[in-house]
Design a protein around this nucleic acid. Structure first.
Lengths: 146, 146
DNA sequence: TTTAATGTTGACAAAATTAGTCTGATTTCT
DNA sequence: AGAAATCAGACTAATTTTGTCAACATTAAA
């Protein structure tokens, strides 16, 4: 059970924007370079984020992307959902009834797991993650720039 | 993000044994019929469970499988792990350091999610699940047999 | 107004993983 | 001996994920 790269790469990319929030747009190429993710692949992810209103695109020369809201108003939950990740574990969670009555012995467990995952995602904002990250890098060494 | 069938089918199969605990062995065919899972596929899963000591096999005619411990001493966590599910979300959780320093901005989140999933799985025994299941079926109607 | 950089879109291909099947052997009970 | 079950491992099929590409549209700077 693993989150797909959609969720993992996408969150890293958005976090890149969050770090640069307030300092103008960031191009996909810059993110691709820093995060070591294919430029083409990132485009796919940003398409979804833009349609959902998380980011705003600035086209033309020296264009790029900007967060549409402040990082402390965007949760990890939103990003993950928009990118199309399903934290379902099993299909029967969304359905109101199981097709297979026997399989329902496991259903309450899947539901509790989903709830616990959602709780973590919903209470974590991009700002929280940026803060955590800065704390780590600063404690490692003086906080380098490049 | 979904648990693979290994985990979902496997847990259902073991639960079938838990329901019949104390009443002798259960054959793979009987479980396959009840749970609507391929007999061949189940064999693969029971192979792992046997090697890990969760179940005991009784070979020959009228053979089958039996739980090796009481259902309230076996957690969902054990079953899931033995069947080879990795609740890792991202590779970097097991590793002591991330190869990509930038990606680490997401790492604390993945770790917290993993911990919350593990907490649910570790505190749920097979007996808990059987009890939940019985409660549901009884409340639906008088508790049918077939 | 031209040009260059960038975003936009949809289709496609490669790779990896998961799911499932099959064959044949062994064991045990009747 | 024969039937019914597990045991073992190889193999294939299907699906999903991941990544690439080409053509086009838009914008900003020169």
């Amino acid at each position: 059970m693993k989150l797909s790269t959609k969720g993992r790469y996408g969150l890293r990319a958005v976090l890149d924007l969050a770090v640069n929030y307030g300092q103008g747009q960031v191009s996909i190429r810059a993110i691709a370079d820093r995060q070591k993710i294919s430029e083409y692949y990132l485009e796919q992810l940003f398409k979804k984020l833009r349609k959902a209103g998380i980011v705003q695109s600035i086209r033309g020369a020296h264009g790029g992307y900007v967060l549409n809201r402040s990082p402390d108003e965007i949760t990890a939950y939103e990003i993950i959902r928009i990118l199309g990740e399903t934290i379902e574990i099993s299909e029967c969670i969304e359905a109101t009834t199981c097709s297979n009555i026997d399989s329902c012995a496991t259903r309450p467990l899947w539901i509790r797991i989903k709830q616990s995952i959602d709780a973590v995602l919903k209470t974590t904002t991009l700002q929280d993650m940026v803060d955590d990250y800065k704390k780590i890098t600063i404690s490692k060494d003086g906080g380098q720039d490049e």
